[in-house]
Design a protein around this nucleic acid. Structure first.
Length: 211
DNA sequence: CGAGTTTGACCTGCGC
DNA sequence: GCGCAGGTCAAACTCG
């Protein structure tokens, strides 16, 4: 638990939608792994991105995909929007998952009401690595054995001090080569690795545009 | 020494 | 009410 004195700094207010440029950067590791058909369980808690199995990840326009509610890729991409659906299970047998709003996590006094207010997006990727480099920095805060699965589920939080995004990482019991990554919440800061890459380029462009 | 990981304990929701 | 399962906490530990 973070023991910050006083009220935490207020993050910028962002709508709980995919129109948030900080939601995801183009995930570098996803580009080297294989995006798989979607999580399409009817009771899925997340907004499941369904990408055609024939398309490689490098063909995906992530900016369009994630900032425009998939408008530019609607022919090729399926997506289930379940913002108002009760959050229950992500995959058959995975059990309940819950949501909680910012600030309601207090030591020994936790309000764990299930309010499906935060967007959740689940990816299936075929990868040998459990941890997919999506450009953000994550801190692991828990790991749990999952029923009917030999692989545990890992829980991560974004390390950015004003960001409350979480993700769960778990391998599919049926196909252990598939990693299911579920993102919960919206990043309120730029992707660090993306900015690291872009900053020198932007400076160079600014320099060149002077002439 | 700070940041991140591990892991057992604890809490809550839910089904029976 | 009870037990199970999922989710989180936090102390101890590891690593750079």
């Amino acid at each position: 638990m973070d023991s910050l004195g006083g009220p935490p700094p207020q993050p910028p207010v962002l709508p709980p939608s995919l129109n948030n440029p900080y939601l995801f950067a183009p995930p570098p590791s996803l580009l080297s792994s294989t995006m798989l058909p979607p999580l399409m369980d009817a009771s899925a808690p997340a907004q499941a991105l369904a990408l055609p199995s024939s398309s490689s990840s490098s063909d995906i326009d992530w900016v369009s995909l994630l900032s425009g509610q998939l408008g530019g890729l609607r022919d090729n991409v399926q997506m289930t929007s379940m913002e108002n659906a009760p959050i229950t299970t992500m995959l058959p047998g995975n059990g309940g998952v819950e949501d909680r709003s910012e600030g309601d996590i207090k030591k020994k006094v936790m309000n764990r009401t299930r309010k499906p207010t935060r967007p959740r997006i689940a990816f299936q990727t075929r990868s040998v690595d459990d941890i997919l480099d999506d450009g953000y920095r994550w801190r692991k805060y828990g790991q749990k054995a999952v029923k009917n699965s030999v692989h545990p589920r890992s829980y991560y939080r974004c390390t950015h001090h004003t960001c409350n995004v979480k993700k769960q990482v778990q391998r599919l019991a049926k196909d252990t080569s598939i990693v299911v990554t579920t993102y919960e919440g919206i990043h309120n800061h730029p992707c660090e690795k993306l900015m690291e890459t872009l900053t020198p380029l932007l400076k160079q462009m600014q320099f060149l545009t002077r002439f």
